[in-house]
């Protein structure tokens, strides 16, 4: 792992390297170097399997983190590659030509986070949410609770009491 890291550092400038378990590490890379890094890992370093592409919304930093998790089935090691893109310019280069199932991930991310992958096949087709007209729902600013309250009706007749508040009403209503 160490040797691999050195190679990646010099060639692609990866940073924030973290070894999580003996067989799993994560590192970050600049958005522009990502595709070349992934291509290199697949072609040269034996990371032949794309396990997943996942997005984490760091709304407080104004960033999306896209994680590409690759696996080397011979050496039985994982490497997770993080790249951060701005929430204002949510676009990422597509890797659909590297793996056949990459477009599925990219299509889902497009729908759930609104991140575009230009050129990825069927990326604009709806994946799960046919007829969805709200903001992409996996973004953190999408409030599930509010959506559910606006969309569905609550069952009538339910009322709850906070024990401390209720005890105050019952036992010392005049104070405060």
């Amino acid at each position: 792992m160490e040797a691999l890291l050195d190679r990646l550092k010099t060639r692609f400038g990866v940073f924030d390297f973290e070894q999580k378990k003996t067989y799993q590490s994560f590192c970050s890379v600049d958005k522009l170097s990502l595709v070349s890094l992934v291509t290199y890992l697949k072609a040269t370093e034996g990371f032949k399997v794309l396990v997943l592409i996942s997005v984490v919304d760091w709304i407080e930093d104004g960033k999306f983190q896209i994680t590409y998790l690759l696996n080397n089935p011979e050496l039985k090691t994982d490497i997770g590659i993080r790249t951060f893109i701005s929430r204002d310019n949510e676009e990422m280069e597509s890797i659909h030509d590297l793996w056949e199932h990459a477009p599925t991930f990219q299509r889902e991310i497009r729908e759930m986070y609104g991140i575009n992958f230009p050129g990825s096949p069927r990326v604009d087709e709806s994946f799960l949410l046919e007829g969805w007209d709200d903001i992409p729902p996996m973004r953190r600013e999408f409030d599930t609770k509010k959506y559910s309250e606006d969309t569905f009706f609550p069952r009538p007749g339910r009322k709850t009491n906070d024990p401390a508040e209720y005890m105050k009403q019952k036992l010392y209503p005049d104070e405060k």
């Binding site: 999580k20 378990k21 396990v51 984490v56 994680t67 997770g80």
Partner: peptide, 9 residues
């Protein structure tokens, strides 16, 4: 229960 910052697969 707070879980420290981190990620794993």
């Amino acid at each position: 229960w707070k879980i420290p910052k981190g990620e794993t697969y």
